[in-house]
């Protein structure tokens, strides 16, 4: 039976090694696979329309189409809040930056921990609201599969456990920190093989759609 510190040392050592290994393997595999698929060249004469190009679509898809914000405010606002919150928590908390620096050599200044703490709470609140919306709206619920619930959970858990570790809730800090790191490792392992891979393919696929439709003269 491992004690708390041994557990922590395992997730910081072999656990991290395995998780990052699987993550890199999966990411490269899928990127190579997806981008080598190729499509038949469109032989028709290109039609030009303003705003119809890959680049336009990459940006346009970040904004809600007219009227959609009113019809589905939770999806847009909640989605924005939790994505930005996640970015702040993941990339601007000093210990996280230290890990990234150690792995990649890149470094940048962090935010005071109170700000990150606030961002974590806001992120979790937004994620819970988005989940509640998914459960409440019949159409969303109908379209949801196991993967949707599962990916929500593996994204939510690292934020929750990290915040609980910092706040000293429920479990001793050492154990909670180890669970936090383990939950991140699960996220890393799962990411390349689920819809979470959109972190890598989001802009590529937007550009692709924009380009195909742009050729037909349709701004999408």
């Amino acid at each position: 039976m491992m004690n708390d510190l041994q557990f922590l040392t395992w997730v910081r050592g072999p656990g991290l090694d395995i998780a990052i290994g699987i993550f890199l393997l999966g990411v490269l595999w899928r990127l190579f696979e997806i981008y080598s698929l190729g499509r038949k060249p469109d032989l028709s004469a290109p039609r030009h329309a303003s705003g119809a190009s890959g680049l336009h679509t990459v940006f346009r898809r970040s904004l809600p189409p007219p009227g959609m914000l009113k019809r589905s405010p939770v999806s847009y606002i909640g989605g924005y809040v939790f994505h930005f919150g996640l970015a702040v928590v993941v990339f601007l908390f000093a210990p996280h930056i230290l890990l990234i620096t150690n792995l990649t050599g890149l470094s940048w200044p962090g935010l005071p921990s109170q700000f990150v703490d606030l961002a974590a709470v806001v992120t979790m609140a937004a994620m819970v609201v988005v989940l509640a919306d998914r459960i409440n709206k019949p159409a969303k619920r109908f379209l949801s599969t196991f993967e949707d619930w599962f990916t929500w959970a593996v994204t939510f858990l690292p934020v929750l456990t990290g915040w609980m570790a910092v706040q000293h809730l429920l479990l001793p800090y050492t154990l909670m920190l180890a669970i936090h790191i383990l939950s991140v490792e699960i996220l890393l392992v799962v990411l390349p093989f689920t819809k979470l891979f959109h972190a890598f393919t989001l802009f590529g696929s937007r550009w692709y759609n924009g380009r195909v439709n742009g050729h037909k003269g349709v701004p999408v």
Partner: peptide
């Protein structure tokens, strides 16, 4: 530091 890997990553490059 506690947030750093406890051991150097071994299988990353191979993976």
């Amino acid at each position: 530091a506690l947030s750093m890997p406890a051991d150097p990553l071994k299988i990353g490059a191979v993976a």
